[in-house]
Design a protein around this nucleic acid. Structure first.
Lengths: 230, 230
DNA sequence: CAAATGTACTGAACACTGTTCAATAAAACA
DNA sequence: TGTTTTATTGAACAGTGTTCAGTACATTTG
């Protein structure tokens, strides 16, 4: 009376794997090795779908079912590869940081530390404009993992320390004297972030008939003008 | 066969109204008047419940069912008084601004415009620390109403214009010369917001072993130090 | 080779979410 | 006394993240 009939048609989606160019070269290695690689490929497949939907629809509108449908999988399957939605977005979070840090790497060629410092802000703003969704994920979304200090933010720490180094170089050249380098770094980052955050949460729209680009560009230039006097 | 029996027990919750101290003084006025007032009281009742839950659990964790349960109403009833969830949070959004603006009003007694400008940031930071959830709602939540310029942000516009006035006063005293007042205002607001935003989204936790208070306090002081040189 | 084990996957189910709406009952009006 | 208006209900709809018994295939073991 109370029993429920479970009728599941467990169609293993090997056809997907075999037809997908991501799953090739499976013959010339050990089985355990191949299994492990297939699992990693599957993670990539899920992550790619998640990124695609996320970048198109934004964070809140990306559901586990959307992701599953995108790769012709069942929603439950994703949980075999990822603990929960949080883990997927942690990966994308990290991806965003790697993208941003990659752009900041270009500044290694800039000799003058103050020029480098000023360029950091320009790169941040450019990044936020081009990758609004990544920026939201990286800085403006409630942390799902609850354990913020578990290492999910380790990559953020790296970026901060890098900027701290730049500030200290500036100070060695006589700039920003009598400023605590750590709090000064925090302040610079906050100011840049403030501009990006207002933009990414659509709080720049009715700022005295100026376009987003104008506000961010000239707003940051005003900050740079202040820095130049310090 | 296909018909569905709707069996609703329409218990009108007048008992609630009569037992609630918010519903008194119903006798000494016209019916239409009383009706209107009762409707407004009902809106307040819902808003109070919404605020309570929202301030306790945060934005995302506040559901229409939570609010309804809190005041012993059915979820559907809320929609008789509010268009949707967005309208409720728009009201709370406005409430937050009124609270913040109320605090900023104290600065009217400060004669020196530069002192006033500096105090604005301190009040913002204090406000964010004490009203994290309000701050999130006001500046860090995706707008639900879609029509951002409909007037939901009119109150924000007021606050901005007020600050613009302060900046222009500063300029009349010779400060921040050769700075565009509008972009400068945007920058000041961005910098302050950046500090608050990092705090409100828990991005200050692993900033070089400093407490939130230290970072916000000394971080803003570093910004003020820059302003003093401009 | 056959049986047992392990791994990958399915889709129904659970407990939620915002929102709509026919049904209802009380109040106001005629 | 009807009749209409107004306020309220709770079921229902379509969605969400997550869990899990069941299934099928691959691999390992006897």
């Amino acid at each position: 009376m109370n029993s429920v009939q479970y009728i599941c048609i467990g169609l293993k989606s090997d056809s997907i794997k075999r037809n997908n160019p991501a799953f090739k070269n499976n013959n010339d290695m050990g089985i355990a090795e191949r299994k492990l690689e297939e699992k990693q490929e599957m993670r990539k497949l899920i992550l790619n779908a998640a990124r695609r939907i996320f970048l198109e629809k934004g964070y809140e509108q990306t559901s586990m079912r959307n992701i599953a449908t995108e790769i012709n999988y069942s929603p439950g399957s994703i949980y075999f590869h990822f603990k929960d939605k949080g883990e997927i977005f942690h990966k994308l979070h990290k991806e965003g940081f790697e993208l941003l840090i990659g752009r900041l790497k270009v500044l290694d060629t800039v000799a003058d530390p103050f020029e480098r410092l000023k360029a950091v802000g320009r790169i941040f703003i450019q990044f936020a404009k081009e990758n609004k969704d990544y920026y939201n994920l990286m800085f403006l979304v409630e942390e799902p993992g609850t354990d913020a200090q578990s290492g999910g933010f380790q990559i953020a720490q790296e970026a901060i320390n890098h900027l701290l180094g730049v500030v200290e170089e500036c100070q060695q050249q006589g700039k920003f004297k009598d400023m605590d380098p750590e709090y000064f770094t925090f302040m610079v980052l906050s100011s840049i972030h403030g501009i990006c955050a207002l933009f990414c949460k659509d709080r720049t729209t009715n700022f005295m008939n100026k376009t987003n680009d104008q506000l961010m560009q000239h707003g940051y230039e005003a900050f740079v003008a202040l820095l130049e006097k310090g």
